[in-house]
Design a protein around this nucleic acid. Structure first.
Lengths: 200, 200
DNA sequence: GTCTATAAGGCGATAGAC
DNA sequence: GTCTATCGCCTTATAGAC
């Protein structure tokens, strides 16, 4: 493992757990088991190191999801697949939602927003929505509000993880189990919302 | 307006917008139009000032909601009322979700979690749920997962507000309009999820 | 490339005059 | 109570030896 790789791994951990403001270069150096000066030798500044980490890590959030979603035919199937995939990723990186939220809420530095890979939503999500809507396979809802809702339901428990753990007294393992159960629950909600009522 | 009130007002703004780590005592003093030394004269330290603000402001999130919810009879009515009330509060304090989330995610300082007023949920929400479930008025879902979902759908757009504003190119006014429309959309989702299917 | 030492500035907090 | 001036620490960043 090269020094650069060690730095990136350590910086990921610290930035993701503590956000930009809370992160300390010293702590990154400690976790990478190198000297603090090396951080600047490789990445010049805290800002540039953060930029690097953000770009690399955010790609992870929406990996090949776009491609895979195309293979799921109906809109409901696509949404259910999204929920499944999302929980797999979030279980692996439970701090990511807070990392992204705290970054895009940072004052005077909104350029990070443009790095969020949301292209696949417009291309695949909305296209499929209107197609299934026309053929009567799904109920007419507001696709934009619906998309926010699905993301909100998926991400929210990970943002409130510390509170949930403390309030209902569970550990990481039990939290993970709850999230596993949550997948089917959310898929059920999606079907109940989108399946048209039978006008018999 | 007394000096203490001016400080509290300024501190609210700065802490809520920037979180604890991002907030600067100097900026709070500037906005209060007083001297930095006065902050320490009135509140001793940044920690103690933050504590004061958090306690006061978090109460606002769940004001008399508990009492008012009792007057709404059915579970679905209660949830719809919650959504309405929540959006009214969040429109007034759009930064609050990020403030709370960033606080409870702070390292080594989980005691803030205990100050969140969630008592009314257990008392009113769950009680009403099981009552309506038994009488067949609502479908059987997981009440815990459902509660998280409703909160997630409600809060999430406010957490991603900077991103939404930039990505779809809207201003504060237009965002507020979107959120106003969202109330009915969410209430509709709730009804679709909870209304039992007719087994005719 | 890697280290030690240190610069330079920002920040929370305090002393002390009024 | 309110101010100015300043302390002392922490943090990012760099200089310079090896």
């Amino acid at each position: 493992m090269t020094t650069e790789e060690k730095i990136i791994k350590a910086a990921e951990e610290v930035f993701i757990e503590q956000g930009y403001d809370g992160a300390r270069m010293q702590e990154i150096a400690d976790r990478a088991e190198i000297n603090k000066a090396m951080l600047h030798y490789y990445f010049r500044s805290k800002d540039m190191l953060f930029e690097k980490i953000f770009e690399e890590k955010v790609k992870v959030l929406f990996p090949v999801m776009g491609e895979q979603m195309k293979s799921h035919k109906g809109f409901i199937d696509k949404v259910c697949f999204f929920i499944e995939q999302y929980y797999e990723i979030l279980t692996k990186y439970p701090f990511m939602p807070f990392f992204v939220i705290s970054t895009i809420n940072r004052k005077d530095d909104k350029h990070f927003i443009e790095k969020l890979p949301f292209g696949f939503i417009k291309e695949i999500f909305f296209e499929s929505f209107f197609s299934d809507l026309q053929s009567g396979k799904i109920r007419e809802v507001n696709p934009f509000q619906f998309a926010i809702s699905v993301m909100g339901m998926s991400v929210f428990p990970f943002l409130t993880r510390p509170a949930m753990k403390k309030l209902i007294g569970i550990n990481d393992e039990q939290f993970q189990l709850l999230m596993q159960q949550r997948i089917d629950e959310l898929k059920n909600y999606v079907r109940l919302i989108l399946t048209p009522t039978n006008h018999a």
